[in-house]
Amino acid sequence: MADAAMVNAPDVKQDLSRSRARGRRLVDAVATLLLWSAASIVVGLLLLFVAYLFYKGASVVDWHFLTGNPTAAQAGGGIGPFIYNSFYILLLTLAFTIPIAVSAGMYLQEYASRGRFRQIVQFSAESLATVPSIVMGLFGLLVFVEAFHWHFTALGGALTLTLLNLPAMMRVTQESLAGVPATYREASMALGGTKWQTIVRAILPSAIGPLTTGVVLIAGRIFGETAALIFTAGASVSYGRSAYDPSVWHTAETLSVALYQTHREALVPDADRIGNGAALVLLVMVLLFNIVARVAGRRLSRRLTGKST
């Protein structure tokens, strides 16, 4: 090959074969290998975690464990009330978070006219997003538990989690709205719709897919949140109150808080067993939220954009 090149063009400075850049190709190959390994290691870690949690927890989780009541000091307790409280606080939190954050996201994305106010809101949201959840928990303690004299309540916990998740929900809204083609807006405005009508009838429905995905992923985060709840919603189911209390004023130890308490101050002899089970249930919930987010988001956007809006 090199000979052919030499014959045809005697002034050729170099041939074209791989050997010329061998050192550089080697570096490239090594870098490629390392990048592949890095990604594979992380995926491998995830598989390890999932396998480990299933290995440890699968024998623990049964119907009795999922629905049974926790015990104070003897083995064989369940986690029923904790699961109830987790969903209770999740729904309450979403009921506050979605309207506020979606409204704010719509304002920033669609009515960005007043530059200064917009900047302040955006900066506040970014700041709010970086407040550590333990700090947010202390704020909830100062305000809801102490200043309002609510003590440890599901409502106080939910409001604290609302503060924690507003920025993410707002961001999801902004991104979902930004993904709607400009032609939808123009079409609706050209038909004589006001801006509000345009948003509600044309833009929101077409953004519903990604919006749903975002809501479900955030729901997963709320479900697993712990640090912000310990000092706001409390950790005291086993104190003898009614475990499945429908009131927003009840002390509500969630599953994640229970997992933490299990390690810290459980009196039951089978704390590890309960911990392994609770950890597996939390993991499975997260996996479910992820799957639901994908499937529902895809389905909804197909259905609602297929239907005329």
Binding site: V43, R221, G224, L259, L282, V286
Partner: peptide, 13 residues
């Protein structure tokens, strides 16, 4: 999706 699951795993887990 694997990386997304990793984000979702609660810190207590």
């Amino acid at each position: 999706p694997a990386i997304e699951v990793l984000v979702g795993i609660p810190s207590i887990v």
